[in-house]
Amino acid sequence: MPRRVALSTYTHALVAGLDEAGRGCLAGPVYAAAVILEEGHGIRGLDDSKALSAAARERLFEDIQQRARAFAIARAEVEEIERLNILHAAMLAMQRAAFALSPAPQLCLVDGNRLPAQLPCAGEAVVQGDAIHAPIMAASILAKVARDHEMKRLDAEYPGYGFAQHKGYGTAVHVAALRRQGPSPVHRMSFAPCAQLALQLHGSRLVSPA
């Protein structure tokens, strides 16, 4: 298990921010990123990815990759989400991103209230960390934009669902497309709307997923 430490212990350490994107979606992989920023990195406009426009995220996506001391983007596939559940799959994606960093971090600040099962160093969970710590903000942007790019690619592979627009979230347009076309191979069948629809399509009585 990662060791929890006081943040003040690592004032001058290599601090990585970790965050994920796509936990609440009905389709597609979950993404994560890890970022180590230089002191005086000069990246303007960092914020929680959810508070930024798509254009601002795209600009920062390039800026972070150019100016960060180190960064890594990782993912957990739909099959892993189904097998492990979405929480553990998101933790796995963050773990993969953290271990891919070079140089290795000395502290990982993880957005949320829990840590991945393994990290390459000490770790600290920070609730709403993507609104507090610049490395987590940067990680949230990389994870979000990388996932958005993947959902646009999947839109071309599985047309008709609107993945490029809603990025896999359970919007009215997405649910209507699910009812019209049925689930695709990248839909998360353990998620209630997909599971319910599959049961309806097969003429079965609805059973709530465990």
Rank of each mutant, 00 (worst) to 15 (best):
A76V: 03
D47P: 11
P159H: 10
A97R: 01
E80G: 01
H88V: 07
S204P: 05
P29V: 04
P209N: 04
S208T: 13
L46G: 01
G123T: 11
D19Q: 13
R3E: 09
P2V: 02
A27G: 12
A100Q: 15
A68T: 02
E80P: 06
D130V: 06
D48E: 01
Q106Y: 10
V30T: 13
G129D: 00
L206I: 13
M1H: 14
E62N: 08
N85C: 03
H166P: 13
L201N: 13
S184Q: 03
P183I: 08
A13I: 04
S184C: 09
A138P: 04
A164H: 07
A93L: 09
G24K: 10
N113H: 05
A156E: 14
A89K: 07
H88P: 07
Y10M: 12
P135A: 09
I132P: 02
A55P: 08
A156K: 15
P2S: 01
Y31V: 02
G42D: 09
L201E: 09
A72N: 12
M1K: 15
L60I: 01
C121Y: 15
A131P: 11
A98E: 02
R3K: 15
K144S: 08
R69N: 02
A32D: 09
A198M: 14
I132Q: 15
T9V: 05
P116V: 06
M1G: 14
Y31N: 07
T11E: 15
F71D: 01
L60A: 08
H149V: 08
G162Y: 13
G40F: 02
A68V: 08
I36Y: 12
G123V: 00
R44E: 14
H12I: 02
G40T: 05
P135T: 05
A54R: 14
P2N: 01
A51H: 14
H41N: 08
G40Y: 05
G123I: 05
P105Q: 05
E20N: 12
L26G: 00
R179I: 03
R4K: 15
L109C: 07
E62W: 10
A6P: 13
M1Q: 10
L178F: 03
Q181E: 04
F71P: 03
I136E: 12
S184P: 07
F163L: 00
Y158L: 05
P193N: 07
Q165D: 12
L18E: 03
F163C: 07
R147Q: 05
Y158K: 00
V30A: 04
R153P: 06
L14H: 11
D47E: 14
A98N: 08
R3Q: 11
H202Q: 15
T171S: 06
V110E: 07
A139D: 12
F61I: 03
A139R: 00
L178G: 02
